[in-house]
């Protein structure tokens, strides 16, 4: 039988942690998004014509949301599991009558929820600056939720793998941020030279941003089916990795 109390307390504890550091958790991603709007949307965007019929300011909204979602999901989830390992409080979770699936549900569920909230706040904030149109709300919501979950899973993996705070920051800094910036957040792929267009197709974030943007403006770099397939594939790979880590007790149990 599932230990629902345990899942609940882990989830609640993680959410409380976000609440205690509300400036860091919610305000800072919103502020940085507004800055992007000012710089890219207003300053640069005023010199750029519409992109495929969408004003540049509105065009970058899905990409900006993705940028925040990805970085926040990874940092929330990685910190959430790394910190108890670092302080040693993990002993309690490991000695509790709780399955690994339940541990995952508590930690990743909370991290994904926080990212989801941030995504919604950014969407509302963006609505104050530009005129938004959401052509396919269900798809939009679907991509939003899937992204939150899959990148929280990635964060969880990083949090289990990292053996220092430096390593914890390494992947978000060296991998996630470049992938997002080069993943078509601020442009469409066909704006790039042909070689870089091909290179971009190896960037999983391209599929995310493309699919997400399609759900807003029906403008995409790749087909929506391919986007969805890639997101699901990425989630599956993360889940399989976590399953392997739990199975072997990787960095948790000796």
């Amino acid at each position: 039988m599932m230990n629902t109390y345990a899942v609940r307390v882990i989830y609640k504890y993680e959410m409380l942690r976000a609440w205690d550091t509300i400036m860091q958790s919610f305000a800072s991603p919103v502020i940085s998004t507004i800055l992007y709007f000012v710089v890219f949307g207003s300053a640069i965007g005023s010199r750029i014509e519409t992109v495929e019929g969408v004003s540049y300011g509105a065009f970058i909204v899905p990409g900006l949301m993705m940028l925040a979602l990805l970085t926040q999901s990874v940092s929330n989830a990685s910190f959430g599991i790394y910190f108890p390992r670092f302080t040693g409080t993990m002993y309690e979770v490991l000695s509790a009558p709780i399955s690994f699936a339940e541990i995952l549900l508590g930690y990743v569920g909370a991290a994904a929820t926080k990212s989801f909230i941030i995504g919604v706040i950014i969407l509302i904030t963006a609505g104050l600056f530009v005129e938004l149109k959401i052509a396919h709300p269900i798809w939009m919501l679907g991509f939003l939720v899937l992204t939150c979950i899959s990148f929280s899973l990635l964060g969880f993996i990083i949090g289990l793998w990292a053996n220092s705070f430096e390593q914890l920051q390494l992947i978000p800094m060296l991998v996630i941020t470049p992938l997002v910036f080069l993943g078509g957040s601020f442009y469409t792929i066909d704006m790039l030279p042909p070689v870089w267009q091909t290179v971009s197709l190896f960037n999983p974030v391209v599929y995310l941003v493309s699919g997400f943007r399609w759900s807003f403006y029906e403008v995409s770099d790749v087909s929506i089916q391919l986007s969805l397939f890639m997101v699901l594939l990425f989630s599956a790979v993360c889940l399989a990795t976590v399953w392997w880590m739990f199975k072997t007790g990787y960095r948790l149990k000796q």
């Binding site: 230990n3 109390y5 345990a6 609940r8 307390v9 882990i10 504890y13 409380l16 942690r17 205690d20 108890p84 302080t87 040693g88 409080t89 002993y91 309690e92 979770v93 509790a96 009558p97 709780i98």
Partner: peptide, 22 residues
């Protein structure tokens, strides 16, 4: 080994819940 930024009450409630007790 304790989480430092939690109250005493919250941490004992957390432990109880973790062990599946209402």
């Amino acid at each position: 080994t304790l989480s430092m930024f939690v109250t005493v009450w919250n941490t004992v409630c957390f432990s109880r819940g973790l062990f599946g007790k209402k």
